[in-house]
Simulated assay, not measured.
Amino acid sequence: MDNVWFITGSSRGLGRSLTEAVLAQGSRVAATARQPEQLADLVAQYGSRILPLALDVTNQAQITEAVAAAVAHFGRLDVVVNNAGFGITGAAEAYTEEQVRSQLETNLYAPIAITRAVLPYLRQQRSGHILQISSIGGRVGNAGISIYQAAKFGLGGFTEALAKEVAPLGIHVTSVEPGGFRTDWAGASMSFAPTIEGYDLVNQRADFFASGNFVPMGDPAKAAQVMINLVEHPNPPVHLVLGSEAAAFLRQADADRKAEFEQWLPVTLSTDHDEAENFLETEMGKFYGVKPEHQRAAE
């Protein structure tokens, strides 16, 4: 299908792989990058089907201009991909204030801002699909990448709530949650906090990333094709995990969370007011569609 895509961070990594795959299968792309001249080879190959746009995703004025320019050029937007971002490794107390702010601005505030900028157009169309490129690090916490994961957990929560908000408008939202893919995430684009004595596990992770010996499982070209197929699906998921590494992490985390939840459930339930009703029978429970466990199992 001839969709119009808006892809941030399109000049390198997963964004570049996705941009190339989308163009190769016949769709059009508003491709944003800090240095759009890096897309010159794709312009030479695909001509007017690609619109390179300069965009610093932390700049609200540039976001507004880029979205408006894409709509003006192509007439609509069908798929919006919030891909731009970068990783950082270190102990939570070691990050500089600038490093913390930069992570949150790029990996959380920026996709929220871009999503808010495109929603009026998608709402008027009563169609569209937003892909938030998150991470398995937005579902499972690991030592050494706490600030990166803080942003990705936030993005996952935003996505899940937004998906319910815009579904009646014909708009889909998916949090794409890869494990390690063979991009430069853990290479040239990775940054590091200062080292602090005592954090042995964190420092070992940082040394491993810096060594260049980290070889991820995932193939970005395959991930790109999955996303192209995804936007054609009539009932896409709100969360899509990519890669065997990510699947293994999530299975273990889900099992650990369930065991912990069940162990502490009596304490959880003990805090209700003595006069409180059964939550499942309250107006709020009905409004949010919360179902008893036996009913969910039967479905």
Rank of each mutant, 00 (worst) to 15 (best):
E277W: 08
L201S: 15
L230K: 04
F192L: 04
L265T: 07
K164Q: 14
I136G: 11
E245D: 15
L119K: 10
S17A: 15
E262G: 00
V4C: 14
T58H: 05
G157C: 01
V173Y: 02
I7D: 10
S175P: 04
F74L: 11
T19W: 13
A44P: 00
N3G: 10
H273S: 12
F214D: 09
I136M: 15
E20T: 05
S11F: 13
E262W: 02
L230Q: 01
V140Q: 07
A161E: 00
T8E: 12
F208R: 04
Q295S: 05
T174H: 04
A206V: 09
V166T: 03
L77Y: 03
F6K: 04
L53M: 07
V215I: 08
S189Y: 04
Y148A: 12
R123D: 12
A161P: 00
D219W: 00
R34E: 07
R139A: 10
P111D: 12
L39D: 14
Q295W: 08
Q252A: 14
F74N: 09
E245N: 06
A253Q: 15
V226E: 08
A223W: 00
V176M: 04
G218L: 04
S189W: 07
I228S: 01
P292W: 13
A21W: 03
F192K: 07
A31M: 08
E98N: 14
D184K: 11
R139V: 09
M217Q: 15
G156Q: 13
M284I: 13
V118P: 00
G170W: 08
R16A: 15
F153I: 03
V22Q: 01
Q103T: 11
P194F: 03
R139S: 15
Y148I: 08
I228Q: 02
V140S: 11
G212K: 06
D274R: 06
G141Y: 00
S10K: 12
L250S: 04
Q225I: 01
F192H: 08
E160F: 00
Q252T: 09
G47S: 13
G141K: 12
A253I: 09
S48N: 05
E260D: 14
S17H: 14
I133C: 09
F158D: 03
A259C: 05
D41Y: 01
P120F: 08
E281S: 08
Y95I: 10
T174P: 04
D256N: 15
T106R: 11
E93T: 09
